[in-house]
Amino acid sequence: MKIAFLYAGQGSQKVGMGKDFYDEFDSFKNHLDNLSDGDIIKTHMFEGPMEELSNTKNTQRAMAAFAGAVTDMLADEDIKPEVAMGLSLGEYGALYAAGVYDYDSYVALTTFRGDKMNKAAEGKKCAMSAILGLSSELVTKSCEEYMSNHGDDAYVTVSNYNCTGQSVICGSESAVEEMENIFKEKGAKRCIRVRVSGPFHTKFMKDAGDALETYFNDNPLESPKLPVLLNATGDYYKEGDDLSKQLIKQVQSSVRLEENIEKLLSSDIDTYIEIGPGKVVSGFLKRMSKDIDKDIKILNIDTAEDYKAVVEYVKANK
């Protein structure tokens, strides 16, 4: 059995996340209780309201607190990945699994990132839309053509290449609306508006990128101790890569998850465990594995019962 850990991004959070873990497992409880802002984080996770939890400055550290605690619980059961990958914020979870920073530093970094992304988004009125049924190449080319004809006043770009046939565009409200009409004419199956609290993974996050650069200068990162796929490149971290530069780039440029998944599916990994609420990342993986008729096992850890089932499955099949 060869295992990959997958980590969810923003949008997967839900009120009540982690409460069953907290009530049942001392390890999870101790992880959260020992955080400097643990009480605030627990309130957002367990009680919400959803509007507060979904503000990126709260979402990011809540998701990190959950993911890091569960990752350590799995390690205590001698369940560790050969490879790690995450979606956007989830990349920070993958790096945690790879030993790039400790738990407190992981939550502190995502707290900082969330705060700076929240500030960078202030006053910027943008829209985001998932384009289904068109190739990433067509979506990219169409956005570039639109921009060349309209200029920065009608900014629109691809913020996420999620999986085969699904890309997400982000830009000014009018530009996104026009592009939705263009994509429908080009044969898109659907165009679905995505509710987010800011124009993430676009040039509007430059201030957040600059802030992260300063943060990493004061808090240098360790090198990953296992293979990690990076969103900004679509490829594995390579010896000598400047990881901090990749994370600075990631916050203000396209997430190349589709390429990350292609790399995973071309490997000998046969078991995938998504850590975090929802099944977004594993859903993309499942769709792309079917396209190439590859038989893999996908597991999810959203609840305490999920966790126990995963531990049981892995131990029975090692």
Rank of each mutant, 00 (worst) to 15 (best):
E91G: 14
E91D: 14
Y92W: 15
G93V: 10
A94T: 08
A94I: 09
L95P: 07
Y96R: 12
G99F: 07
V100D: 12
V100E: 12
D102V: 08
Y103T: 08
D104W: 05
D104P: 05
S105P: 04
S105E: 15
Y106G: 07
V107D: 13
V107I: 12
A108W: 11
A108K: 15
L109P: 08
T110M: 15
R113T: 05
R113K: 11
G114N: 14
G114T: 12
D115R: 07
M117E: 08
M117G: 10
N118G: 06
K119Y: 06
A120E: 10
A120D: 05
A120F: 01
K124D: 11
K125T: 04
A127F: 00
A130E: 11
A130L: 04
I131D: 05
L132I: 14
L132F: 06
L132M: 11
L132P: 04
G133W: 04
G133V: 02
E137Q: 06
E137T: 04
E137H: 02
L138V: 09
V139T: 08
V139P: 03
T140Y: 10
T140W: 06
K141D: 15
S142C: 09
S142F: 04
C143R: 09
E144N: 15
Y146M: 10
Y146E: 13
Y146C: 13
M147R: 09
M147C: 07
M147F: 13
S148H: 07
S148P: 11
N149D: 14
N149L: 14
D152T: 09
A154F: 10
A154V: 02
A154G: 07
A154E: 15
Y155W: 02
V156G: 07
V156H: 04
V158G: 03
S159C: 11
N160L: 00
N160A: 00
N160C: 02
Y161V: 01
Y161A: 06
C163P: 00
T164F: 00
T164S: 06
G165Y: 00
G165V: 01
Q166H: 02
Q166M: 03
S167H: 01
V168D: 04
C170F: 01
G171V: 01
G171S: 01
S172K: 00
S174P: 02
S174T: 06
S174F: 03
A175V: 02
A175P: 06
E177Y: 04
E177H: 08
E178D: 13
M179W: 03
F183Q: 04
F183E: 10
K184Y: 14
K184G: 09
E185L: 09
E185V: 02
E185Q: 12
E185K: 11
G187F: 10
G187Y: 09
A188D: 13
K189R: 14
K189C: 09
R190S: 15
